[in-house]
Design a protein around this nucleic acid. Structure first.
Lengths: 95, 95
DNA sequence: TTGACATGCAAGTCGCAGCTTGCTTATCTC
DNA sequence: GAGATAAGCAAGCTGCGACTTGCATGTCAA
């Protein structure tokens, strides 16, 4: 339903990826705090949770349950495939 | 208003980039035809025009007027910056 | 077991992106 | 100039995505 491009379209989700790429294995609560601190994101816990679900669906975030907490990891692999779709940088057309 | 990630979120806009990266300097009408042929995109001329405006705003498409036609070029440079935001592939965390 | 903590689920609301419709502008040909 | 072609503009409609609200589930500590 949701593809990786749509997942990246939301600013909050990009901030989440920022935080997860800086510090892996964060819980939902930890992430909410860091989003507020670093990016001024005031989203509620549920909102962040839904964003994480989207990111997990498209493979940008991997998760692991530990007791009553859920840890989240960033996975940049899907980005490579997504952006390899078009030529980057040099396309000696008119330059 | 619109950033590059939001610009990439729409499937039709991605098809437009596909076509423009395959064949540069296309007009709006030419593009509409190719979108229909190659991707089954049935969007109207106005819809495609609006998509092109978005792509031009974020720098993924460059244009040049020639008389009563307007030619469009794909520019992949903004993709590079968008990519560099997160680590791709190897991030020696837990591997 | 009880209470507190961390997360999940589901329905409802609201705003905006994408599309259409109709008209207008600009350029070329005759 | 008149007509045809290519594109631009603006207002209105509609569906979907992001958020909230309320409650349910599951886990740990006492």
């Amino acid at each position: 339903m949701t593809d990786i491009y749509q997942a990246l379209a939301d600013p909050t989700r990009r901030f989440i990826l920022d935080e997860l790429s800086k510090r892996e294995g964060q819980t939902l609560f930890e992430l909410c705090g860091r989003l507020a601190m670093a990016h001024g994101v005031t989203s509620s816990r549920q909102a962040v949770s839904q964003h994480l679900a989207v990111l997990e669906t498209v493979g940008l975030v991997r998760t692991e349950r530990q007791g009553r907490t859920k840890l989240h990891w960033f996975d940049g692999a899907p980005l490579q495939a997504a952006l390899a779709r078009w030529p980057i940088g040099e396309n000696g057309g008119d330059a």
